[in-house]
Design a protein around this nucleic acid. Structure first.
Lengths: 251, 251
DNA sequence: CACACTTCCGTTGTATACAAGGACTCCCGC
DNA sequence: GCGGGAGTCCTTGTATACAACGGAAGTGTG
């Protein structure tokens, strides 16, 4: 008894709250039972998520939450930095009501941290960036950023982020404060540093996935593929033991 | 006899080549007949495209190619500028082989222009930006840019772009030349000007769609919606007489 | 003649049935 | 004991059937 956008949203939220780990299996039938609908709707939801690069399907094996490679992790953070600092750079000032919403958001972050509500906390820390993008008047980039944030959440699960929620929240506060003073230059710099700090908290060196090196080594040489409509599948799945995945936070 | 990614790709290519106009109807059954498959696969393809913001579906009425509003057009160009100049700004230099590919691309642009091959020409002019993003080592933003480019193609059909293909190609050449000299600052500035020029060629003033003002005026007041997983449908369809839509080019 | 109501048709929405392929296990042979 | 092979089960892939809803046209009435 749920529509397919609802199902997709629930899955994204679960990822954003780090309740779904990278590589997790998403069987059609189990989900269908869970939501009380037929496989058709589940499939539609998963297809949507696949188009957004959040899950992958390998033929007749199943649907899985993506496991970003080190290279993809780098791309994701780069993309976020490009978009978020780029938006701040072009912005003159934030409308007062948007500012108010952001302040409210940060307030709730702090609340969730105080209450020890890990799911909500993680979710809000990521959502801050989406809110910011939307507050800057670009829903398009806001949507793109939501997907990137989901990716980042998965990355921080995969590569054992050591970045503290507390610190992230403080940095968010600083950014909002800069925005309140309409000091865009400062806000941009703070954002830059914030993202760098989060990325730096990752253990991208000798990756969590022991197959990483093998995979990169055995990659086919870059062919002369012409870029076209659909994203080609960029890598295969790797087994990966069911990770405990219950540690710290990003964003 | 086609897979669903193929179908989606074909549709995107048609849009990129401006062979599909904004507001165009995409019936499931006709497409199914055309591709020799059942509605299921067509539906899957359309669902993918909907997730990428290229088509919309209104319940029991049908699937339609999006018709970006003026506000959305502005957002799309802003997004492109943020992403493309942002990438250039962070880049030190382009690897020689990427540079070669870009040069080849521009060469084919020129060829298509000379041959008067409008479809290919339009397609290549848009694809240049996608190639550039990928050449800069970020496939993620490349994909995002592809969708934005499709959007831009639709926008230029809707708002009667007066930007000449010839000029776009020349500007692309200039950008590639700057990249060849590893003068990133210049490349960034040229890209900035290029995008501004394309956007400026649009007739966003008193829009092609006479309902535009009404629509904006009657929009519900911005509620306190919390940003979440799925993009909410942002506007309704408007009839729009089957546009002749056979004029100039963007990118 | 105009307006409203009703009926029909065409569309998408959802579920289900069946096909196809892969992985896992169990068994047999060595 | 170990390796290989066959069979079974479980998964997704695709098509089809039917339901639900909206729009348009036709008809009847004021």
């Amino acid at each position: 008894m749920a529509t397919s956008p609802e199902i997709a949203q629930r899955i994204v939220e679960a990822i954003l709250a780090q309740k779904l780990a990278p590589g997790e299996r998403l069987g059609e039938q189990p989900l269908a039972d869970l939501f009380g609908v037929s496989r058709t709707l589940v499939r539609e939801a998963l297809t949507r998520l696949a188009a957004r690069g959040i899950v992958t399907v390998t033929a007749r094996r199943g649907w899985y939450v993506i496991e970003p490679s080190v290279a993809e992790a780098r791309e994701a953070f780069e993309a976020r930095e490009v978009i978020e600092t780029g938006l701040l750079r072009r912005l003159k000032r934030l409308p007062p009501e948007s500012l108010k919403r952001l302040k409210g958001h940060v307030f709730r972050e702090r609340q969730a941290i105080r209450d020890g509500d890990v799911g909500t906390r993680t979710y809000l820390l990521g959502d801050f960036h989406v809110c910011l993008a939307e507050a800057m008047g670009n829903a398009l980039l806001g949507d793109a950023l939501r997907d990137l944030t989901a990716r980042t959440a998965l990355i921080s699960m995969l590569y054992q982020s050591s970045h503290e929620a507390e610190q992230s929240c403080r940095e968010h506060e600083a950014i909002v404060a800069a925005l309140a003073k309409a000091d865009m230059r400062l806000a941009e710099r703070l954002m830059h540093e914030h993202l760098r700090a989060v990325a730096a908290g990752l253990d991208l060196g000798k990756a969590a996935d022991p197959l990483e090196k093998l995979r990169e080594a055995l990659q086919p040489v870059a062919a002369d593929k012409q870029s076209l409509g659909e994203k080609p599948p960029r890598r295969k799945r790797a087994p990966l033991p069911p990770s405990p995945a219950t540690q710290e936070t990003r964003s």
